[in-house]
């Protein structure tokens, strides 16, 4: 029983990164209709920026803050410089654009920082908590707290501020928003900035566990896609819950379903997601209207 709980807990902690990345995916998708496959690579850029700042002698927390701000700026630049030129209804073009961004960012990261994996210091120290036979590391606890705080900020931003209201207005109905005098380009790039900031948090939370390398977010991105499907990409709560569920299912599936092991452990989680979306296409928390046909 303890082993079951411990493995579930480990999975839950792993799922935190998926949740944060899925939230970033969701914000971009709602705004620009783009399934942004470069979201993982954007998170890697953030992690490398934080790492470079630490190397330059900046303490870890200011370094993370710099990385988050820089990512937001990068998101704005990408929207204004690249994404806005592709019409929002061209799903396939947008997805392809995401792939080219992924390749391009991967190349730039490799040129600037090299491909040699590096260690990334945990901003939360190296202590361990034992509770009722279960174990949590500082990195796991800190990761949860940081991601939860990010979600809270995003929730407040979207529901409690005029900024968020306008952002949602533009995302949901660009034409009416334009009648109200909202410049959709500006607001959509703000959406990209917010998404990339959340992605940056995912990057710095993942880096101490995964080690810093250009391909570090490849697996988490796939899991985040599954999370967004499961929870419903239109729901901010949904994607987060989806990420956590995927993390737990993967860990449990790998341990307890015979024959899955460490490489097919994702099968269990994916199978459940696909079963769910066949019954409820918009995901657990999604409303049908937000699904883009």
């Amino acid at each position: 029983m303890i082993e079951f709980l411990q493995i579930g807990l480990d999975g839950l902690m792993t799922g935190v990164v998926y949740a944060a990345l899925a939230l970033a995916l969701g914000v971009v998708f709602q705004g620009t209709g783009m399934l942004n496959l470069s979201q993982g690579e954007l998170a890697v850029v953030a992690a490398y920026i934080a790492w470079s700042c630490v190397q330059a002698g900046i303490p870890i927390w200011p370094a993370i803050a710099i990385a988050v701000v820089a990512s937001a700026a990068l998101g704005t630049a990408l929207y204004q410089g690249v994404v806005r030129f592709v019409p929002p209804h061209r799903e396939d073009s947008l997805m392809t654009l995401g792939v080219t961004l992924l390749l391009g960012l991967n190349a730039i990261i490799s040129i600037i920082w090299g491909t040699d994996p590096r260690g990334f210091p945990s901003p939360f120290g190296t202590w361990v908590v034992h509770l009722a036979g279960l174990r949590l590391t500082s990195q796991q606890i800190g990761g949860v707290v940081l991601v939860a705080a990010t979600m809270l900020v995003m929730a407040l931003l979207f529901t409690r501020t005029t900024f968020g209201l306008r952002l949602r207005a533009v995302a949901q109905n660009p034409r009416s928003a334009a009648f109200l005098g909202l410049r959709s380009g500006l607001w959509l790039s703000a959406g990209w900035a917010a998404a990339c900031a959340v992605g940056a948090v995912a990057g710095v939370v993942a880096a101490p566990t995964l080690g810093l390398s250009p391909a570090m977010m490849t697996v988490p991105l796939l899991m985040a896609l599954a999370a967004a499907n499961l929870g419903g990409i239109g729901s901010r709560v949904g994607v987060v819950v989806g990420g956590l569920i995927i993390g737990v299912l993967t860990a449990i599936g790998g341990r307890y379903i015979p024959g899955l092991g460490g490489d097919l452990n994702v099968v269990f989680a994916f199978a459940i997601v696909i079963a769910v979306v066949l019954v409820k296409p918009a995901g657990l928390f999604g409303r049908e209207s937000v699904v883009r046909a």
């Binding site: 082993e3 411990q6 493995i7 480990d10 570090m216 697996v219 341990r255 460490g262 490489d263």
Partner: peptide
Amino acid sequence: QVAAVPPGTADLSAQVSQFQA
């Protein structure tokens, strides 16, 4: 116990728990 994972997998906390158990 054998943990055979795809390249790029780095979070083996669940596998480590399994090994210990």
